[in-house]
Design a protein around this nucleic acid. Structure first.
Lengths: 344, 344
DNA sequence: CGGTAGCGTGTTTACGTCAACATGTCTATG
DNA sequence: CATAGACATGTTGACGTAAACACGCTACCG
């Protein structure tokens, strides 16, 4: 009789009963020791602990979850893990959740089609999670909203407030205003904008705030240019804008596009910040080392992640529902890619 | 009697028994329908399906896991999520695991101290996972190895082969050789190296391979410079190397350090690739837009992630143990940061 | 027409844990 | 010295699911 010859049923280590037998106590006492209850005699506790080590006891979280009706686990639905912001937010979420004693279940949406999103939510219904944080663009969510299981606590990380779920996000409007005003304050007549894709609420918020800031200052509003967050699209835009002598200041909706734009301006021989000033958004770890070092808007992904987890755990444990959206403030980091316009 | 007034016990929706009662069948039949078994009459199945929809039935994965002894979930221990390679690998792991029907449990190690690593492994013991992929530097693992639960399938993503666990990683040595030979083939007398931290096996492999390649070509071996993967450390190194006229070619162990180094060379007025050629390692999405566009070694994180998952699921389901390490090949991407040395 | 194989369905039971309750023991108090 | 109270420990049962087995019906065969 070799171990593991049954492919169906895997015996994973030993259970409470084994420990109990070896320590000469009841299963209940093992349970008490495992859960750190106080009403166990010191010598008994030691005996149980020794027995646990001997058999390599690990509590079975499935049984525990079944008994308690809770998994102590949260799901994170993420659309594109490799995107910069999502990664940083996920990192913060994982950290916050872990230190609150919750496990993190990753639920990637494999592709962008509506069917895939729905599938992800269906799968979610079967997941062992007490709540969900949604890190995908809310436009996608719209399509599949019906699929969300009833009564499951949800927090959406997005800038769109018109959901039934609590929302936590960076204060996109404030960040965009900071960037635009910085350039205007330097003396530029107006500010151009390379925005994110229209599928993104965040991009939408930044663009609207840029436009409002210009209007409030009675500046001309140049046509918006739409990118897709990638350095490639920044590069393409840069090649085009470099030909336009009217352009002296650009607010780019993220740092990666700004990088591509900087490269295009180098190639076209346009000096930054001499001829053109550039402001980004994100403040990646590398942005300080772009050429020239990039002035940008720093968003606190850590804060967004932490507050999302707090909100979700609040819902899970206390049934709280804060429908008041949380907007995490940003900070302008001034480096060397911005300067007053050249006298002409 | 309001819902949720018991904070301890949460009733999540309805169980098989509810569905069974409404459909007028036994729980077992509901189970068969839920699991797509064939031996259920079509009309009965429809009745059960209708009842499921009516009460919003979702199978309880805790009970299922308890019954089956499997969680259909894998854990990923990750040390620093925000590091570039880990993120990409995690993305691939999540994708591969999901399409194989496994959930992904994220287990972040909150800080670098040995205690924290041990804590993570202890926590791991309590996680609902059938196997684990370890994405942290194996040096860290060394310290805490004893803590790994017995009999739990493990795959290590690292370049160090001397573990009891299957290992999957990029072929670091081949990549470093590609980079070094490219520079030598361009005519450089020798190649300097900015390596990663000594705590990293990957950095160690790249450095050793760089040195071996130089030795094989009978080139002088300059002193190695040690960075910490950050653009900051690349910048610091660049400021220093810019003063040294002997340096005409540098192989940098990752693209982020290369970015910082490029910035330092710009600031010091050293032309790239005119005065100095630079090769990186990773090929991030941005590397093509560095100034100048960076020649670098592309590693296939997607492949590493996929093969890790395959190996792990193989262990879980069939008990296979391939102790033969898997080395995923790299590819040299030639852009504009390398050129023959200037005639002097 | 007796036997049996196949199929849809129901019944029982075990998975590992932990709350509730029950029991036993030891100490303090009138 | 009887009794209550505090405290350590044991016993029972239930959480939701699915495997194993049991049952009864129909179809087919010699």
């Amino acid at each position: 009789m070799t171990a593991g010859d049954s492919p169906v049923r895997r015996r994973r280590g030993s259970s409470m009963a084994d420990v109990a037998r070896i320590a000469g106590v009841s299963g209940q006492t093992v349970s008490r020791v495992a859960n750190g209850k106080h009403n166990v005699d010191a010598t008994t506790r030691d005996r149980v602990l020794a027995a646990m080590r001997e058999v390599g006891y690990r509590p079975n979280s499935a049984a525990r979850a079944l008994r308690n009706g809770q998994f102590r686990s949260i799901g994170v639905i993420v659309f594109e893990l490799s995107s910069f912001g999502n990664t940083r937010t996920l990192d913060a979420v994982a950290t916050a959740a872990t230190s609150s004693g919750y496990a993190v279940n990753l639920l990637p949406v494999l592709d962008a089609t509506q069917g895939a999103v729905s599938t992800a939510f269906t799968r979610l219904g079967e997941q062992a999670v007490d709540g969900v944080i949604i890190l995908i663009e809310a436009h996608e969510l719209d399509e599949a909203e019906v699929m969300l299981p009833d009564g499951l606590p949800v927090v959406v990380v997005d800038s769109s407030a018109h959901y039934d779920y609590p929302v936590v996000d960076t204060d996109q409007a404030q960040g965009a205003r900071l960037a635009t005003e910085h350039l205007l304050d330097l003396g530029h007549a107006t500010v151009w904008h390379l925005g994110g894709p229209s599928s993104s609420f965040a991009a939408d918020r930044r663009a609207r705030s840029w436009q409002q800031t210009l209007t409030a200052r009675r500046c001309a509003v140049p046509p918006i240019i739409v990118g897709d967050w990638s350095a490639d699209s920044g590069y393409a835009t840069g090649l085009q804008l470099a030909e336009n002598d009217d352009v002296t200041a650009i607010f780019v909706a993220n740092d990666h596009m700004a990088l591509g734009l900087l490269r295009a301006l180098h190639e076209k021989g346009r000096a930054v910040p001499g001829d053109i000033s550039v402001v980004g958004f994100d403040d990646t770890a590398e942005s300080a080392h772009y050429w020239p070092p990039l002035t940008t808007v720093r968003q606190s992904f850590a804060e967004v992640g932490r507050r999302s987890v707090d909100a979700l755990i609040g819902q899970i444990q206390a049934g709280e529902h804060h429908h008041q959206p949380v907007a995490v403030p940003t900070e302008l980091i001034v480096r060397s890619s911005t300067a007053p316009p050249r006298r002409s």
